[in-house]
């Protein structure tokens, strides 16, 4: 690893000031499970590392019954240890738990997963399915960006020089909703998603779908939402036929590439399979919570 300066500011303002001065050669360190690998393998050379794990706001983990405020540096292990969250956001927790091993979970944060902007990031489709927002502090102002608009390409985000992702705001889905996240990997663990599917559906008293969100990972330069699949679901009872239609739309929306992890045709195929399967799980969860 090449030489760099390390700072561990105590406030958001200090962090933003450091990043602004760093002028593109600075990077935020949260769990380090992507960043340190990138520096070690020479993918990234930086002059300044800003460790944000001493800032109270980035370590916040609060759920008030309607919104989860998740600090950008909170490790996945802490999310899992929270008593209430699994009941409210089972799909999101599944996604967060899939990131790496227990060792990685102890350090890796959802904020880092979002900022690393890998097309295969596990939490991103799950967050998109829940309509989560990114709260960004900057030298001028604080702004909020939906997760689905945060990444602009592989490794690229809307963050400007000096900006810092402080927290994610994840709204609890309304009564009668269920979310789910599934990914496919060749191994059972320790793998990168070949495809990931995050979904959230809401059912009314009659079991009719009133709202649906479908998001896919690893089938395009960024995670994508699939509005056509969502439209195919709303108004149905989420039966086999509706799920198959949504899966069809997911396949159609996927724009995957061939790479060492899988050929494009296979990813496209999986987009359908995982959409159908995750929707079935989400539907069952929604029915139990109707």
């Amino acid at each position: 690893m090449k030489s760099f300066r390390y700072e561990a500011p105590r406030t958001v303002e200090e962090a933003v000031a450091l990043l602004a001065k760093g002028n593109g050669d600075a990077r935020v360190l949260a769990g380090g499970t992507d960043l340190i690998v990138q520096m070690r393998t020479g993918v990234r050379h930086l002059r300044l590392i800003v460790d944000v794990k001493r800032i109270p706001e980035t370590l916040r983990l609060e759920f008030d019954g309607t919104v989860l405020r998740l600090g950008a540096a909170v490790p996945c292990a802490a999310i899992r240890e929270h008593r209430e969250l699994r009941r409210i956001f089972p799909g999101f927790l599944e996604a967060a738990e899939l990131i790496g091993s227990e060792q990685i979970q102890g350090r890796a944060s959802v904020g880092g997963n979002v900022c690393n902007a890998s097309p295969a990031a596990d939490t991103v489709p799950a967050l998109i399915a829940l309509g989560a927002e990114c709260v960004i502090a900057g030298p001028e102002r604080t702004r909020s960006v939906p997760v689905e608009a945060f990444a602009t390409g592989p490794g690229e985000t809307v963050l400007q020089t000096g900006e810092l992702l402080v927290e994610l705001r994840i709204p609890a889905p309304p009564t009668g909703s269920g979310d789910a996240y599934l990914r496919f990997t060749p191994r059972t663990e320790m793998d990168i998603a070949v495809v990931g599917a995050g979904v959230c559906v809401t059912l009314d008293g009659e079991g009719r779908c009133t709202a649906a969100r479908v998001a896919l990972g690893a089938v395009a330069p960024t995670a994508i939402r699939v509005p056509a699949a969502e439209e195919a679901l709303v108004g149905t009872d989420l039966g086999t036929e509706a799920l198959e239609l949504a899966a069809e739309e997911a396949r159609a929306a996927a724009r995957p590439i061939d790479d060492l992890r899988a050929p494009a045709w296979y990813r496209r195929h999986l987009a359908g399979v995982l959409t159908r399967r995750s929707l079935a799980i989400a539907r069952d969860r929604a029915m139990r919570r109707a």
């Binding site: 060749p186 191994r187 059972t188 793998d191 992890r261």
Partner: peptide
């Protein structure tokens, strides 16, 4: 070891 997948 991420992409040379020995069994876990």
């Amino acid at each position: 070891f991420l992409d040379y997948r020995i069994p876990v």
